[in-house]
Design a protein around this nucleic acid. Structure first.
Lengths: 130, 130
DNA sequence: TCGATTGTTATATTAGATATATAACAATTT
DNA sequence: AAATTGTTATATATCTAATATAACAATCGA
């Protein structure tokens, strides 16, 4: 899976890497058990420091998206197999977006539909076997 | 409306202020046209620097939640009256949450219901006239 | 008109986060 | 044993977050 970084972006590089890998797993570009590049390899590929990739991997590991082991490297945990409890975080972030939607003038239905739509866009990629 | 800050939180103080005011508007604690405390007043009330509040207010203004004027101060714009285009941001953030929901093993329905639920929790407060 | 209050801008300082650079360590597979 | 992996340790530079003072600029009200 191709990973790219925008050095001019407001969001930190390790966050960009983190999010792209989450998207990769959700979209089926990264399958359960699949190995990610080593921190050194990915760092060189995208032109950043080893520690920046390491920080992203550690965060992914803390959130249950990947497992980290010596020599074996980083491996994707897979859909529905994580034991990390990120629901509180997800709910909290969704709460802010809901508030913003309210202020924006969106209806409950419109907001739920937007959520469904974004879910389906990602999920259909995996279902298609990409 | 009471605003509090957690100095030990990971999220910056100006973001905490920003989010609480967005929630306040969405929940009806802050009504259209209502005045917010001056930057100096709020800064003193919650024990932070004037510039920290100012940063929050400027961000709220950029995102269309409030209007800033000399002497008059900061005034709430109100539901559905903003001209700022924050939909791209909202969609982008919702996309990440959708991806995380997919990896978590949630169904499309479950994710949409969670979105609806969070929307309703906030919206019902305003509807109740709080 | 004058004065007070408002947001705004400017400058400086401190602390923390982000990212880099090197180096070494520790675990594990081959 | 050797190589590859994540991990830890230092050090450095840059940027953000937050504070502290001070002054400026707009505007409302007396």
């Amino acid at each position: 899976m191709l990973i790219t970084v925008d050095f001019l972006s407001d969001s930190p590089i390790y966050i960009q890497i983190y999010e792209q890998i989450v998207f990769g797993i959700a979209a089926g570009s990264l399958c359960s058990g699949e190995s990610l590049p080593s921190v050194r390899r990915l760092a060189e590929d995208i032109g950043v420091n080893l520690h920046t990739v390491n920080k992203a991997y550690r965060l992914l590991s803390d959130d249950g998206y990947i497992r980290l082991e010596h020599r074996t490297g980083a491996q994707v945990v897979g859909i529905g197999l994580s034991h990390a409890d990120i629901m509180p975080y997800l709910t909290d972030r969704l709460r802010l977006l809901a508030a913003q939607a309210v202020v924006l003038g969106m209806s409950e239905r419109e907001f739920a539909n937007l959520a469904s739509e974004e879910y389906r866009k990602i999920d259909s990629k995996r279902t298609a076997g990409k």
